[in-house]
Design a protein around this nucleic acid. Sequence first.
DNA 1: TTAATTGTTTCCATTTTTAGAAACTAATAT
DNA 2: ATATTAGTTTCTAAAAATGGAAACAATTAA
Lengths: 104, 104
Amino acid sequence: MKKTISLSEMKDKYLGMPGTIERDQYEYELRMDVLGKMIRAARLERKLTQEELGRLVGVQKAQISKLESSANSATIDTILKVFKALQAEVSFYVKMEDNFLQIP
Amino acid sequence: MKKTISLSEMKDKYLGMPGTIERDQYEYELRMDVLGKMIRAARLERKLTQEELGRLVGVQKAQISKLESSANSATIDTILKVFKALQAEVSFYVKMEDNFLQIP
DNA sequence: TTAATTGTTTCCATTTTTAGAAACTAATAT
DNA sequence: ATATTAGTTTCTAAAAATGGAAACAATTAA
């Protein structure tokens, strides 16, 4: 007999576990290695292998591996393709330091 | 005589004006065209020309123009180089839809 | 242990981005 | 209007990312 639970309940259960995507209020500095870790976390939450995710995205498992381990940089387009295949939304924001300006 | 005001005060004054970076709570979908607009907004807040920003980053003004108008995609590394030159921090987060999972 | 699965690394070819330079357009100032 | 500044587009070459394939390593299952 199978039991159906929501992803929210899963998050409640596994919140804070390494390798899982945490709640919305968690923000990350935009860096390639952090992005790679997020891709891996999202893939694992979807219970996919790199090969399966590769099929969804349309690339080979080797590309997914390279992205997750941030072997090199990546283009925005590639990042978006992968998160889209994982049915995940990515948001960002920019914060500028509170420098002082001279008003003439 | 010059008057010195903080960037916060500037934001208070110009909040909502087109082409300015708005407050932290404003989030943006991670897309190349939105990133380009943010680069332009940040550059203008720093009161820099494309040529000056190019010098800071170490590229020609043409590259800056291409990024801002999102003529093509861009690598994460390039995006970060530009925002760093603008002394701006970029954060992101991933939200996964609340799908249902089958637990065996 | 062995077999099967999953993930990593390497090689090569192709595509795309990055870069400099110059020509061009648009906007601003004198 | 003309000159100056700012931004865009095009051209070329170089660097880097992407992609397929196979070999390799690591993990898991039987």
